[in-house]
């Protein structure tokens, strides 16, 4: 569906060259909800903006359904953009237009006749559950409602892809949930491919099936969400995983005076197998579960535990080996 190959983007800013994207390669398949996560300034927005050429890449290819967007002239590019929906952190609705008129905009510029527009607007309002706000103005809506209008507007011309740039970052957690649910529904119902940019792990965890982790203009890790987050390799990815919430503040570790702390990550069958109790039976040690939980990431179980191991040093070593043999990732947390 979307292939990004060897993409570079440099900004010239008063003589300085900012390398915002460095050799980006991603493949997004039809029906994917593809998450791009990274800290602020990592280059996420620049990357999606290259997909619909809001930003001109410095080098590289962006193929959409096999068509290189760099080969398109101005009017072909406009036609392509009509088939790529986009939603934004700050919604970017037209303040002078009502909800219905906002949704009408993309239909107007696609020269859809009036009666058909009316019909489509009603369909979309139903889809995003905003029928009662049809004639309201954006200023009369809550953030979540504005984003629903944004989504309806983005879907008006039956796009192939929906790009979401921090679409939930300005919303409270509860509203975020409802918007993510809506996106998931659209993905399932319409088979729409969705690209989601975020700095929030929750968003990825909730709805993405694939993820790319970005840092300093590069993709440092990517793949299926359950794989990437069950076995985070990169420091930045580990930090995002920690942010799901199974972690104790470091000060607390020190205060409580634990000796040997181990972080365990496991997925799939590992999460449902009683590996820990087997380990305790097999070796002469005690395990004290301090913190953790098991998450559902796209129908896949992912466990993340912090355990204190008590016992002789060599027994602990053996126990850790045992865990590793059983495909549990162990990380000794040094204090």
């Amino acid at each position: 569906m979307i292939e990004v190959k060897g993409l570079y983007k440099e900004f010239r800013d008063k003589g300085n060259i900012v390398k915002a994207l460095k050799n980006i390669n991603i493949t997004i398949e039809k029906g994917d909800i593809f998450g791009i996560i990274g800290l602020s300034g990592a280059g996420k927005s620049t990357l999606v903006r290259c997909i619909n050429r809001l930003e001109e890449p410095t080098k590289g290819k962006v193929l959409i359904k096999g068509q290189d967007v760099m080969d398109l002239n101005a009017s072909q590019l406009r036609e392509l953009r009509k088939k790529i929906g986009m939603i934004f952190q700050h919604f970017n609705l037209l303040n002078s237009r009502s909800v219905a008129e906002n949704i009408s905009y993309p239909l107007e510029i696609s020269k859809v006749p009036k009666e058909e527009r009316e019909k489509r607007i009603d369909e979309l309002l139903k889809l995003v559950e905003l029928e009662d706000k049809k004639n309201s103005y954006p200023s009369q809506l809550s953030g979540g409602q504005k984003q629903r209008v944004g989504i309806a507007r983005a879907l008006a011309n039956h796009p192939d892809v929906l790009l979401c740039d921090e679409a939930t970052s300005a919303l409270d957690p509860k509203t975020t949930q409802s918007i993510l649910k809506l996106l998931k529904k659209i993905n399932e119902k319409l088979g729409l491919t969705i690209v989601i940019i975020t700095h929030e792990m929750e968003v990825i965890k909730q709805i993405c099936n694939k993820v790319a982790v970005m840092e300093n203009g590069e993709i440092v890790e990517s793949g299926m969400v359950s794989k990437v987050f069950a076995h985070p390799k990169n420091e930045i990815t580990k930090n995002f995983v920690k942010n799901i919430g199974h972690d104790i503040p470091e000060e607390l570790f020190k205060e409580l005076g634990f000796k040997k702390l181990v972080r365990l990550n496991f997925e799939g069958s590992g999460a449902s197998n009683p590996i820990l109790s087997k380990m305790i039976k097999k070796y002469d040690i005690d395990a004290n579960i301090l913190f953790g939980g098991i998450d559902h990431l796209q129908n896949n179980l992912v466990g993340n535990l912090i355990v204190e191991l008590k016992g002789k040093e060599e027994e602990i070593e053996k126990a850790i080996c045992f865990l590793k043999e059983n495909e549990v990732e162990c990380e000794v947390i040094s204090l």
Binding site: L80, M86, N95, Y105, P106
Partner: peptide, 13 residues
């Protein structure tokens, strides 16, 4: 500027 950008992203002339 965000509104203008949205309009560009929608394929406006």
């Amino acid at each position: 500027k965000g509104i203008i950008e949205a309009a560009i992203a929608m394929g406006s002339t």
